[in-house]
Amino acid sequence: MSKESFKGLYARTKPFMFMIFLQTSYAVGSLVTKSALNKGLNHYTFAVYRNAIATLFFGPLAFFTERKARPKMTVSIFLKIILLGLLEPVIDQNLFYAGMKSTTATFASAMCNILPAITFVMAWMFRLEKVKMKSLHSQVKIIGTLVTIGGAMIMTLIRGPKIQFPWTNNHTLHHESPVNTMNTQDQIKGSLMITAGCISWASFVILQAVTLKSYPANLSLT
């Protein structure tokens, strides 16, 4: 393979690689979060720590790399940033973590995976996304939305046989899991919280796309 062909292949596959890495990070993050919540960590505290660490990491990067790229701050942009902060770090994360405490990491990860579907439907409702039923492009989007939601429901509702790994034993497999000991009412409440959090997250994604048009400094906005 020539150098030019390799560069072209890398350019085409790079977005998919980033998306795979992102989804893997979401899955690992859900497992770590669920473990921390099970050990008694308050979900409000976890959200504060998460955002504080993210700020310490991204703050210097944004300051130095976008010093000359940041547009002038206006009242309109400032209000959008306040609303963005309310939708994702405050409403979404706290509802999401509170719901995860009453459900499972699998359900939380499955709901994260249908975020594009929720965002697409909301953008369609607010006429930010144009859908033409006769267009192949629109048909693929609709089919993808249905497949995504169906896959999330299968992951969440269908329980297959238990898988034994080398480091597990019969006691671990036959021991009643925390999911089975949960109150059904708590599971429903947690599911509704995660769903509401994902709707808030989808609203954040839509508003973020609108805000970036007038404030195209990604790290600074983050």
Rank of each mutant, 00 (worst) to 15 (best):
R50D: 04
A209R: 04
S2G: 12
P178Q: 12
F18H: 09
T65E: 02
A209F: 02
A105R: 09
S203K: 04
L212D: 00
L86C: 10
L115E: 06
A117V: 12
T181W: 00
G40F: 12
A98F: 12
L136E: 14
H171M: 10
I194V: 14
A117T: 14
A117I: 11
R127I: 13
V28T: 09
A105M: 04
A108H: 03
W124N: 04
A202P: 03
A202E: 02
A47T: 15
I82L: 15
K189M: 07
L86Y: 06
G85Q: 08
R67T: 01
N170F: 03
V90Y: 11
F46C: 05
P116H: 12
M182I: 01
M122S: 01
S220W: 08
T172A: 12
M17S: 09
A11Y: 04
N113P: 00
M153I: 11
T211D: 07
Y215G: 03
A54V: 13
T55L: 15
L79Y: 08
K130V: 15
T156I: 14
Q139D: 06
G40R: 13
L61G: 00
S109A: 11
A11H: 08
N218L: 10
T181L: 14
I142H: 09
N170M: 09
F64V: 13
V147N: 05
L86K: 02
G29H: 04
K72R: 08
M182Q: 13
L136M: 13
K189A: 03
S25C: 14
A152T: 06
K162P: 00
L31F: 09
Q185V: 13
M122G: 01
T195N: 02
I77E: 02
K3D: 11
A110L: 03
I81R: 00
I194M: 15
V131D: 04
V32D: 00
K34R: 11
I82D: 01
S138K: 11
H174L: 08
T195Q: 00
L212G: 00
K7H: 06
G99T: 05
L173G: 03
I199P: 01
E88T: 05
A105E: 04
T119M: 03
F96C: 08
V48R: 08
S102F: 03
L157Q: 08
M100N: 07
